[in-house]
Every structure is written in C-alpha cells, then in structure tokens.
Computed example of a mutant assay.
Amino acid sequence: MTKITLKGNPINTVGKLPKVGKKAPKFNLIKSDLSKAKLKDFKGSKLILNIFPSLDTGTCAASVRRFNKEAGNLENTKVLCISRDLPFAQARFCGAEGLDNVITLSDFAKGKFGKAYGVTIKDGPLANLHSRAIVIINEEGEVTYTQQVPEIVDEPNYEDALKAL
C-alpha cells in the first residue's frame, strides 16, 4: 500500500509501483478501437506509462497533452496513457485535442492493470480509479524508472521521467 493525498487528504493505493530493475508486470488493456494491447506488443520499444485517474480532470488532460508534445521528439519510445476511462472517451479526447503521438489504453473492464502495477486507489472519493504515476520500461521489458505522484492533483515530474529514458 502507498499513501498519497487528494487535495491534502490521505488516500491509499492497493500496492506499490513495480520495482526498478525488475520485469514489468504483464498487462492486457483495451485500445480505443476495442482491440487488446499487451505488454509484449511493445517489445523492442521504450515505454512511458503515463497512468492517471481520468481524462475528465484538468491535470490528467494536461499530462496527456504534455507527453503527446514530448513523444514527437523521442526515439524508439511509445507513450501509453492508461486510465479506467472508457476507450470511447479516450478516443474522443485525443481526437478533439489532435493528439496522435500517444496511445490511450483503458483498464475499465476488470482493473487488473491497476492492481498489478499497484496504482488502484483503495479508498476515498476516487476509489477504484488509478493514482497518478509514471513507469518507464526499457526495450527488454524491464522497469527502469517509477514515479508515484504523492499529491494526486499535481502533475508528474516530466523532466525526471524524460531524463530517465
């Protein structure tokens, strides 16, 4: 369990982020076209997992916009924006914003990704959504960097995440 806050009020996640130096947990998420996306589908690319509660919040939307901007300059790197939003909402948001450098993936169906990565919020008003976190995975599927944002309304430290690539 990880203790974080929501506007200063304590909340908890169900676990901890994967350990740096270990293999990333497998996942099975849903793309905007309702097809499945698995970790192994991205083998050979560096991955930035931009994990957040919902695109319907300003901070989450800002993180997707920022990573979309950065993704255009990253070599052999894919940015996966992961939430429990419905795939339709993710596609609508990216379409309306003209964001095409990121890949949105949904954990709406069973929430297994959130549990495997330790980001499912356990209590409080955002219970069952994901916390705000960054996980970077190298070409071999190993976790090389993690960042659990301690205050959920704050943006991640983009500079540290990008340096970790």
Rank of each mutant, 00 (worst) to 15 (best):
T2R: 12
T2I: 07
K3S: 12
T5D: 11
K7H: 12
N9T: 12
N9E: 13
P10W: 07
P10M: 05
I11V: 15
V14M: 12
G15I: 15
K22R: 07
A24C: 15
F27I: 09
N28A: 08
K31T: 08
S32M: 08
S32I: 11
S32Y: 15
D33Q: 08
L34S: 10
L34F: 15
K36T: 11
K36Y: 12
A37P: 10
K38V: 06
K38E: 08
L39S: 08
D41T: 03
K43G: 01
P53D: 13
P53C: 14
L55R: 04
T57S: 15
G58Y: 12
A61V: 10
A62K: 13
S63K: 14
V64Y: 01
R65L: 15
R66C: 08
R66K: 14
F67N: 04
N68E: 15
K69I: 13
K69W: 13
E70I: 09
N73L: 11
L80P: 06
L80Y: 02
I82T: 09
I82C: 00
S83V: 09
S83M: 09
R84G: 01
R84E: 03
R84N: 04
P87V: 04
Q90N: 05
A91H: 13
A91G: 14
A91N: 07
F93H: 03
F93V: 00
F93P: 00
G95H: 15
G95W: 11
A96L: 14
G98I: 08
V102F: 02
L105S: 11
F108A: 04
A109T: 09
K110G: 11
G111S: 05
G114Q: 09
A116N: 10
A116V: 09
V119Q: 02
V119N: 02
T120V: 06
I121F: 06
I121N: 07
I121Y: 06
K122M: 06
K122T: 03
D123N: 10
L126D: 07
L126P: 03
A127C: 03
N128R: 12
L129Y: 01
H130A: 00
S131M: 00
R132C: 05
A133F: 05
A133E: 02
I134R: 00
V135C: 01
N138K: 03
N138E: 01
E140I: 07
Y145L: 01
V149I: 13
V149W: 06
V153H: 05
D154S: 13
D154A: 01
E155G: 04
E155F: 05
P156L: 08
P156W: 02
N157T: 08
N157V: 14
Y158L: 12
A161N: 13
L162C: 05
A164Q: 03
A164W: 15
L165W: 14
